[in-house]
Every structure is written in C-alpha cells, then in structure tokens.
C-alpha cells in the first residue's frame, strides 16, 4: 500500500494503519492549514521493478507530494516534516540494515535535498505503528503496536540494539 493525501481542511483526519518497514512522511505548511501525508514502501526508484507508480518510492513520492502541496499553497512554501515508520518486521530478512532502515535513510536524505527541515519522528525498532494526523498536521500522534497513541513532538529513533 502506498499513497499520498493532501488536505487544507482542518477537520479532516488522515490515518495510516499498519506501518511496518514502510515510512510515512507528514509535510505541513508552517503558516497556513495545509498538510500532505505520504505512505512509501521502497527507498529509491531504481530499486523497484519497472512500470511502478512513483508513489511507492520515498524519493519520487516525496517529490510528487511537494508538487501537490505547492499547487495548494497560495504564496510561500514553507514546509516542515515529520517521519514515521521504518521498522523491521522479520529479523534476518533481506540484506544489510533491512528495507525499513533504508526507507528512513532515503527519507531523511530526500527531505534534505528538498531543504525541508525534519522536526520530529518516530522510526526504527521492530514493531508496527499507526499514525493519526489531525488539524492539518498540527496534531500528529503515533501509536506503537500495543501502546496508546502519543503526540509526536520530537525525534525518536528506536534502532534495535546491536547484537
């Protein structure tokens, strides 16, 4: 599952459930009610099979989301980002750091390329997350599997301990 949603309606709630190794990027406008939420499965376009839609990939999907937001933003495009997800569901599956970690890395790099500051996040670890975005990104909460949702206001990397 991969998708991007943009809204200017503060009463609209955007929800992503079952974020595992995927990442969700929340891009909110710092002045006006405008937010985009993208759900991405793979780090960079070159890694996937061909004829895929861009929105599966962190790098291409982020670019597309920025364009979507720019169309809605009347004047300035002052955005900030939150990043959620990128955990490891199967220990030992895949090469190296795993796709979740690579998604997180691709997201931080892509945001930097776009000059968008990353102001908070909850990434890594071994559990899935549910994400709730309200009030055009002014209220963002993350629930780690089996836990109650908590407001996302800082950066939290739950990188697995080295074994």
């Amino acid at each position: 599952m991969a998708s991007t949603v943009v809204t200017t309606d503060p009463s609209e709630t955007l929800r992503i459930v079952g974020l595992g190794s995927c990442v969700a990027i929340v891009l909110r406008h710092v002045q006006v009610p405008l937010v985009g939420v993208g759900h991405f499965m793979l780090p960079r376009r070159a890694l996937g099979v061909q004829d895929e839609s861009d929105d599966k990939f962190v790098d291409a999907g982020l670019g597309a989301m920025v364009v979507k937001l720019a169309r809605r933003a009347e004047h300035s495009m002052e955005l900030e980002a939150l990043l959620v997800g990128g955990s490891r569901m199967f220990r030992g599956l895949g090469a190296g750091a795993g796709i979740g970690r690579r998604n997180v890395q691709a997201a931080t790099e892509s945001l930097e390329e776009h000059g968008i500051p990353l102001v908070g996040g909850d990434v890594g670890g071994t559990l899935s997350r549910n994400l709730l975005v309200k009030a055009c990104g002014r209220e963002v909460s993350v629930a780690l599997l089996g836990q109650a949702g908590a407001p996302l206001t800082a950066w939290f990397d739950r990188e697995e301990p080295q074994t």
């Binding site: 599952m1 459930v17 079952g18 974020l19 595992g20 190794s21 995927c22 499965m41 793979l42 890694l47 996937g48 099979v49 955990s87 490891r88 569901m89 199967f90 599956l93 895949g94 795993g98 796709i99 979740g100 998604n103 559990l127 899935s128 599997l145």
Partner: peptide, 15 residues
C-alpha cells in the same frame, strides 16, 4: 504484528 505491516514488509523486502 499487524497484517498490513507484515505484508508491506514482505512486499518491499522481496520486491
């Protein structure tokens, strides 16, 4: 874990 998280991870990791 949640079905969505597990299936997405398999889909991504195994392309």
């Amino acid at each position: 874990d949640q079905a969505g998280a597990i299936l997405d991870s398999l889909t991504a990791e195994l392309q």
